[in-house]
Computed example of a mutant assay.
Amino acid sequence: MDKLMIENRLKEILPHDNVKIDEELNKYTYTKIGGKADFLLFPTDYKQVQDAYQFALEVDLPVTILGNGSNVLIRDGGIRGVVINLTKLVDITLENNKVIAKCGAAIIDTSRFALKHSLTGLEFACGIPGSVGGALYMNAGAYGGEVSNVLESAKVLTKQGEIITVSKEELELGYRTSSIDKNGWVALEGTFSLSEGNHDLIKEKMDELTFLRESKQPLEFPSCGSVFKRPPNHFAGKLIQDSGLQGTQIGGAQVSTKHAGFIVNVDKATANDYLSLIHHVQKTVKQNYNVDLETEVRIIGEE
Rank of each mutant, 00 (worst) to 15 (best):
A106D: 04
H259A: 11
D200R: 12
A260P: 01
L4M: 03
L119N: 05
N96C: 04
T64K: 10
I13R: 06
T257C: 01
M138K: 04
C126N: 13
V132I: 15
T31K: 00
T295Y: 03
A56G: 07
L10F: 13
G133T: 05
L151T: 07
M1V: 09
S153V: 01
Y274S: 09
N290I: 00
A105H: 04
F113M: 05
H234S: 12
G184D: 08
T295M: 12
R9P: 00
V291F: 02
D51Y: 02
V281T: 05
H280Q: 15
E123K: 07
D109L: 12
P222K: 01
K11N: 07
I92V: 11
G251Q: 06
D242A: 12
N96F: 14
L194A: 06
R75K: 15
D22I: 03
R176Y: 10
K238Y: 09
D2Q: 11
A140Q: 02
I74Y: 07
F113K: 12
Y28T: 01
S243A: 14
M206Q: 14
E220Y: 00
I13L: 12
L61H: 09
S148R: 12
Q160R: 14
D273H: 06
C224I: 02
G81S: 06
I84C: 02
E24M: 11
V49L: 03
F228D: 07
S195T: 13
G174D: 11
Q48Y: 00
L86I: 06
Y143A: 01
P231V: 00
E189P: 08
R9H: 14
G81Q: 09
T44R: 13
D38R: 04
R213P: 07
I13P: 06
N96H: 15
F55Q: 02
G161R: 04
A56F: 12
Q50T: 14
N96W: 13
K32D: 01
H117Y: 15
G130D: 03
H259K: 01
I84L: 05
I92G: 08
A56H: 09
L277G: 05
